[in-house]
Each structure stands twice: as C-alpha cells, then as structure tokens.
Simulated scan of single mutants.
Amino acid sequence: MKLFITLALLVSSTLTASLPAPSNTVDPETIVNSPIYQAYKGAFSANIGGSSENSIVTRNDLIDGKCNDVIVIFARGSTEPGNIGITLGPVFFDAIEKVEPGRIIAQGVNDYPASISEALAGGSKTGAKYMVSMVSLAASQCPESKVVLSGYSQGAQVTHLAAGYIPEDLYSKVAAIVLFGDPDDGDAFPGSLNDNVATFCKDGDRICEGFPIPSVVHFTYQNDVGKAAAYIAERV
C-alpha cells in the first residue's frame, strides 16, 4: 500500500509538473485521456479499500419500483461507468447500509454522459433534470420515504444544478444533500435545501478550488463515506 501511494504521488507530481500554472482555461481532457492518468486512477480506485472492477456500477432500485425509508439518488464522476461509477458510489451505499441496515434503496442518475466537456461547462443539465425526475418519482411512488441527493466530482455539479430545478413543494422531501470533491464548493443551495448539506472537500483537491486538475486526493473520498453516512443517519 505504501509503495502504491508513493507511485501514485510520483505520477501526480509528474503530471502536475508538466502542466502550465493552474487556471480555469486548462484543458483537462488532455490530462484525463492520457494513459498515465488513466492507469493511476484505476489503480487508486482498486487499491484504497473500495470498489473494483467487480463492483455493481449501476443501481436502479427506484425505477424498478422499489421503495424504502431512505432513497439515495447519486450522480457519478466524469468518465465513470454505469450510473453510480466505481470510485465512490458502491462504497458510499455500503457505508449507509451499515448505519441504516435494511432501510435504503439506491438510484443512480441515468441520461447523464458524465463527459469531460459537460464538466467544463458546469455539469450535465440532462443529468440534473433526470435527478429531479427521480425526486418527483420518489414523491409519488414512495410518499413516506426520505430522499438523499448526492454526487461526486461532476456528480456534485449535477446535484447543484438539479437543486435549481426542484419545485419548492418537494424541498421537504429532501432530507440531506451530500457532496464529494465538489467543483462548486461554497455555492449555496436554494431555500431550505441549504439547511442539510454536507460537503467533503480535501486540502489539495484543486477541483474543489475551481481548477479542472485532478490530483491523487480527488480519488480518496472513500475515506469519508463513514462520516457522510453518519451525517445522513442523523437526518433520516
């Protein structure tokens, strides 16, 4: 593990050193599509005690007709597979299930390409509208359930955008909003939605600072899922 982290840090420092000074005009597509970046991202996700290639990367419990006390609607990060990804989604759901056993169902955000270009533009509007449609479905299909909205990286952007589309009469349905590696860190949510928001942004995560430059720390939010789950448990 120590050897892996050392290698990952070396990759990150090499990658950062090859870039121009950080600015909002940096094109991250070159970074994210580079073989060295993809290699260390995949290795990091598989080796810090979280999900792997065998993880369930798609969850559609709500649209499959299920209900439960808590419905977690989650938007994955850019370029991730399925509708909950591999970096955070699966371990996040596991953590919530540990503190609220038998009480949750999970729904990923579909109609959301999670592309780099959309992240640069502020997040996927189609993904945001799909998230809102899932809140509406939860309200009609599961009227007694509480909803948690969550997203990682571009998924956090999607969650911010979705909040702007949610009708005010559904605000009370949303018990908590939990964000990881949020590019819009510090931006308020509308109305009472802002009363129950937890954001996990680590020191050194340039994406949280508004720069589209991924670093090693951006892939370590699996270490925060326990705290996030505890936050949710207090509100559901």
Rank of each mutant, 00 (worst) to 15 (best):
T58L: 05
Y171R: 07
T30S: 14
K2I: 15
P183S: 12
F44Y: 07
S117H: 09
G65A: 11
A139M: 14
K125F: 07
E144T: 11
V135C: 06
S153F: 03
S45E: 08
G102A: 13
Q157S: 13
P113F: 10
T25H: 07
S124R: 02
A156D: 00
D27Q: 13
G89D: 04
A39D: 10
G123V: 06
V225H: 02
A229D: 04
G49D: 09
S133Y: 03
N110M: 11
G123K: 06
R103Y: 10
D169P: 03
F4Q: 11
N24W: 14
F93T: 00
Q141H: 05
P28I: 13
P20N: 08
F92D: 00
G49S: 10
Q141N: 05
S145N: 06
A233H: 07
Q107T: 12
N68E: 09
I116R: 02
I73V: 14
N54Y: 07
D182P: 10
S145H: 05
K146P: 04
K227W: 13
D195P: 02
D69C: 12
H160F: 07
A128Y: 09
Q222A: 10
I166T: 11
A43P: 00
I177V: 11
I232V: 15
I232C: 04
V236A: 15
V225E: 01
V178Q: 00
A162K: 02
L19E: 06
L9Y: 09
T220S: 04
